[in-house]
Each structure stands twice: as C-alpha cells, then as structure tokens.
C-alpha cells in the first residue's frame, strides 16, 4: 500500500513536470491553432461578408460545396493532381540527389549548397522569375529547346502543361528533401555496407537491401511532410497562374483565399478550409496506417 502511494506520488511529479515542460506549447496551441480553427469551424456554418456580423446558415455552405459548385470540383481536381504529380518526383529525385551528394568526394560541400539554394530562396520574386523562365517565346527553357530543334510547350499557358509546370517548379526545390535524406544516409552504419561488400553484394543490392530499408523511417517522414505541403500549395497559383488556364491550377488554398479575401465570402471559405484540413488529416492517417507495412526501424 505504502509502496503504491510512493509510486503514484512519483508519477504525479512526473506528470506535473511534464505538463510544465509542455506548457509553452499548450499555450501556443490554444491561441495560435485551437482558437483560429474553432473560429473557422464556427464560421463555416455561417454566411459572413467580413463587413457586419456572421449569419448562421447551418450546413448550407457544405451542401453548396458538394452539390452545386463547379469550382470546388476544379479546385479539388487541381490539388489532387498536383499532389500526385509532384510527390513521387520529389521523393524519388530527392533520394537520388541525396545519394549523389553522399559520395565522399572533395568539393561536395559546394554542390550541396548549390542544390539546396532553390529550397532556400522563396517568395514572390522567385515565382515571378519562373514566369520569365518558362515563357514560351522568349523564355530560357524554350530558347534552349529551340537550339536543339524542339519546339517547347506553352508551359503555364497551356491547358495540359500548366499543372505539370507548377509541379516542375516544386521539383526545383528538391534540395530541401535531399538534405534530410542525406542526414538519413549518413546515419546508416558503415559496417553494414562493409559486411555486405565482403559477402559479395553489388552496389545495387546494397541499395535495395541496406540503404532503402534503413531509410524507410526518413522516407515516411518525407512522404508525410511533403504531402502536407503539396496539399497546401498556394503561392504558385497566387503569383503565376491565378488559377488558370481554365482553372487547371485553381488550387484549393487559392480558392479559399479568393473566396475569403476577394469575394467577401468568409463563411464559405471557412468551410473550404475545414474540408481541406479534414482531407489532409485523413490522408496523413492513411499513410501512417499504410506505413506499418513497409517502415523498418532498426533494433
């Protein structure tokens, strides 16, 4: 009995100290996440034009979203396809780049800086630069293609190329993913490779048998982070395409922004935001569940 009491006292100290350590986060969570989300949730059941007060309209916004809003379908399609286009490329190319940068050769530091650079610079200017870069007539890419006799596509201004162009822009930033893979690669104990080499495993086999399995936790992390980011794509549509052509790049968050801050339709915009949040959470949960089949942890 006495023993139990002592244990629970220790447990209590543990709990109290734990909560104390977490308190800054909980405070921040309350003010910077919980309140805004609850506010959005409330607003999603109202009609609110920013000016004046919000009017409760029940599920009307959600009903409109699913039954009679063609733009909602465009936005969902554009976002969905962007995730599908950009995610595999970013994950695979990121890994390939990391494998290259992991080679123990002099001067690799410089290469690492160069490849990471695109992930570092962001903002409006860089997005605008891409408009110039991919301009079909005077842009750098099509001019280069013309030198080798290829007539390049219309990129952002072509119905079929607009979305892949935006995906391509995000691939340029693959260095950000590569640096995290790189950390994972350097974490793999060298003796495993040495042992495998002795057993006569080729580089190819080493990659599939050692590198990849040991990298799965990093892969999972990347998958989740990049997927969340892809769902939240905004700046490219905002700065470059304005959702066009024909709503092919009318991404979800851009739709939210237009409704909230341009069309004075905050209630509906909030419903869109809540829907996006639910989609991201479900997708993440799904990935996490699926990962149990393939993520391998050492020990």
């Amino acid at each position: 009995m006495q023993f139990m009491g002592r244990k629970s006292k220790r447990e209590r100290t543990q709990a109290i100290e734990g909560y104390v350590a977490l308190s800054p986060w909980m405070f921040g969570f309350l003010f910077f996440y919980a309140i805004p989300i609850l506010a959005s949730l409330y607003l999603s059941f109202t009609q609110w034009t920013l000016v004046g007060s919000a009017k409760w309209i029940g599920f009307e916004n959600y009903i409109r979203m699913f039954t009679r809003d063609p733009v909602f379908i465009d936005a969902a399609t554009a976002t969905g396809f962007f995730v599908l286009y950009s995610l595999p490329f970013k994950l695979i190319l990121g890994l390939m780049l990391a494998l290259l940068l992991n080679m123990k050769l002099p001067g690799m530091n410089y290469f690492r800086t160069i490849f990471f650079l695109p992930a570092v610079i962001s903002g409006v200017a860089v997005s605008l630069m891409w408009i110039w870069f991919l301009q079909p007539d005077t842009g750098v890419v099509n001019t280069l293609l013309r030198y080798v006799g290829i007539s390049g596509p219309g990129w952002f201004w072509d119905i079929n190329w607009a979305l892949p162009s935006v995906a391509m822009m995000s691939i340029w930033k693959v260095g950000g993913a590569a640096i995290i893979y790189l950390a994972g690669l350097q974490n793999i104990p060298a003796h495993l490779y040495e042992a495998a080499a002795i057993d006569g495993a080729s580089k190819w086999q080493q990659f599939w048998r050692i590198t990849l399995p040991l990298l799965t936790p990093v892969l999972l992390f990347q998958l989740i982070i990049e997927m969340i980011d892809a769902f939240k794509i905004f700046t490219e549509a905002f700065v470059i395409t304005q959702g066009g052509p024909l709503n092919r790049t009318y991404f979800f968050l851009y739709y939210f922004y237009e409704e909230a801050f341009r069309n004075f339709n905050m209630g509906y915009a909030s419903a869109l935001a809540i829907f996006l949040l639910i989609v991201i959470m479900s997708a993440t949960a799904l990935v996490k569940w699926w990962s149990n089949r393939w993520v391998y942890y050492e020990n």
Binding site: I131, W132, P136, D137, T138, G154, W157
Partner: peptide
C-alpha cells in the same frame, strides 16, 4: 501577343 507574352 499571346497570353503568355502579356502575362510576362
């Protein structure tokens, strides 16, 4: 000019 030219 194409839309691309104007946009740029």
């Amino acid at each position: 000019p194409t839309k691309a030219e104007i946009d740029v």
